[in-house]
Design a protein around this nucleic acid. Structure first.
Lengths: 135, 135
DNA sequence: TGATATGTAATAAAAATTATTACAATACAA
DNA sequence: TTGTATTGTAATAATTTTTATTACATATCA
């Protein structure tokens, strides 16, 4: 997995901490310390998943779409999750080999099981709780 | 995460299925369908973690270091696991921002918790059980 | 002693990620 | 109604990571 979950969590934490006002992508990029366009790209994705709302034009910006206590870390993870939690190689296993022929199906099943326990655990913490850890 | 776990699982499954003989990196590369040097690199890592044994010279090759029933998927995962299960961005958050200053520490803690539940789950299946799924 | 392996370093090629530039669309406010 | 600040998005470039390849030293068997 790449850095998208970290970036998404950073964004959501900022929006949670600044819950009363709209935050700009420029401001968030300054905190995260990455390019503002990348921030907007992730914001666009979070928007699509209904986690945040946006306001265009001057004095526009972003805010949480619902109270932080109603957003779980699992919900945020779902918005950015990779195809395979355990990673996936780009190779095409040899179909003439009895192991190669079946390995991807079995790995996929294993991956699904692991994703489930991860989501269960991530679902026990809300964004509000995560945000409360900050002083 | 990249494809290392998949490759490692493929290797370990091949060694499990061919438990009676030594397998060469060339043969395994043919099943996985990647470059033999990459296979040897991963074999080198699995060796370092005590999961397999190797025999140099003609008629050499690789084998499991212990019975497949004594190897868990968690053990294999440990050998290839990334620094962060949930991924890590390469940015350096702004230390002047109260959120940026602390986010990495909190994300690291979250990551450790998730890794724990993953390992718990992966620890419930042995390589022998995984291998038995193949027909 | 020749053939076949492992083990590993160095380098090249390909793919993925991140950054940058550019600009259209929108909304506020003077 | 016009200038300014902002979202939204496409196109491209730069960087980093992953994968492949080449090369060769070392080991073991027959």
């Amino acid at each position: 997995m790449n850095g998208r979950f970290s970036i998404a969590m950073h964004i959501m934490t900022l929006l949670c901490a600044g819950e009363d006002s709209l935050l700009s992508s420029e401001f968030m990029a300054g905190s995260i310390n990455i390019n503002p366009v990348l921030v907007r790209k992730e914001l666009s994705n979070l928007l699509k998943h209904g986690l945040i709302s946006s306001q265009m034009g001057k004095n526009g910006g972003y805010a949480l779409a619902k109270p932080a206590k109603d957003i779980t870390i699992a919900g945020i993870y779902e918005a950015v999750k990779p195809d395979a939690v355990l990673g996936q190689a780009k190779n095409q296993p040899n179909p003439a080999c009895p192991i190669g022929k079946q390995i991807n199906a079995h790995l996929k099943q294993l991956d699904a099981e692991i994703e489930q326990v991860m989501l269960n655990k991530l679902g026990t913490t809300t964004l509000a709780e995560f945000c409360n850890k900050f002083e």
